[in-house]
Nucleic acid binder design. Structure first.
Lengths: 204, 204
DNA sequence: CGCTGTGAATCATTTCACAGCC
DNA sequence: GGCTGTGAAATGATTCACAGCG
């Protein structure tokens, strides 16, 4: 399977696996079977085996997967081995919530730069990061930052994105409820909170 | 098509269509073709036509779709015609950000109740909503609230969920990075922010 | 024996292509 | 003529089922 095209959906599940594996690791488990993992995540076990088989042979027949090894492999596939400095654009309510969000640590993201265009906010600190002017986004390459989070109002989102792209960012996590235009080489993932909520009443 | 099983993916796209249609409406457009909508959303036009055809015949051949009519139809399908009171559990950073988030208005969600278990927070106001004790969650049926948002730390998420379920909530938007156990009749949508970010480096 | 790894079968979704209606 | 609505074809993802290894 190693040379097949890997489904996008498999990639999407890898961070989920990683989180579950970290949980098992902390619980002191040495090995875990696809069945165990499937039960924990409410997935199908052969899907888990297939997902990992796309990337190589990670398990031991008769035994299962070595938890810590699989964690390393998964981190490796996702390119999360090293801590990744990340830039946040927008220091409003959402930006502040993201700065406080402990979840990023699991995947090694570290928000080391925060930008805003409100002069009143510039220079202030949130946690231990100082808010800088959006003009400083041009410095990102110097600071080795290639991931950005867009948490500005919808109307400013494309502009913020353009600045990140100009600073050679390769990935953007977007919270503005709109499509962002970027060059093909830049990957954008949009999280539209209200949109997710929007389909809930349908199922009720 | 009217009597076919409707793909989950189609439902997922309806809120996206709604947002785009509202944009066209505000721009003064009377009609929009599936082609126009597709271009705007970076979708395939026949997918849009098929999605709407699952629910009935909404367009006019040779003309396109009546924007305002389609907005009404879409709202109707998603059961968003009326303002929906919604409960938020967790008044931390994320909760505050959600309260300030303008996006909910588009879909008619109105956070009219906020609960937290921190006695220091209870009674305080955020915007024009007062924080109440989580014990008051039992009052939700009285207050006609059947949607809940879980924005508490991971360790408290299942407990918060259980309280919402006990109060006959039918839909839950979950921000805790874990699977929530609920009875089958309750629909849960989980947004795991860090997880989304977790696959960004893979594509870079 | 137990569990992985994986072709093959199934199931779901998307796209094509065009008949049919305005 | 133009655009919808939709079967049919193509594509993509999931699940089955079991061979093969530890």
């Amino acid at each position: 399977m190693r040379y097949h095209k890997i489904p996008d959906e498999s990639i999407r599940r890898l961070p989920v696996y990683l989180r579950a594996l970290l949980y098992f690791s902390q619980a002191g488990e040495k090995h875990v079977s696809s069945e165990k993992l499937a039960e924990f995540l409410h997935f199908n076990s052969s899907q888990i085996r297939k997902d990992f088989s796309y990337f190589g042979y990670f398990g031991t027949r008769g035994v299962g997967y070595d938890v810590d090894k699989l964690i390393r492999q998964t981190r490796n596939i996702l390119k999360l081995e090293n801590q990744r400095p990340t830039a946040l654009v927008g220091a409003g309510n959402l930006g502040k919530a993201l700065l406080a969000y402990e979840g990023f640590g699991i995947y090694g993201f570290d928000i080391t730069a925060v930008f805003d265009n409100d002069p009143k906010k510039i220079g202030k600190k949130i946690g231990n990061v100082s808010i800088e002017s959006v003009k400083k986004i041009t410095d990102l390459p110097k600071r080795n930052i290639s991931l950005g989070i867009v948490a500005v109002p919808t109307g400013a989102a494309q502009e913020a994105t353009d600045m990140l792209v100009a600073a050679d960012v390769t990935g953007i996590l977007n919270f503005a409820p709109r499509h962002l235009n970027v060059p093909r080489k830049v990957k954008v993932i949009t999280i539209d909170i209200a949109m997710e909520l929007g389909r809930l009443p349908y199922y009720a």
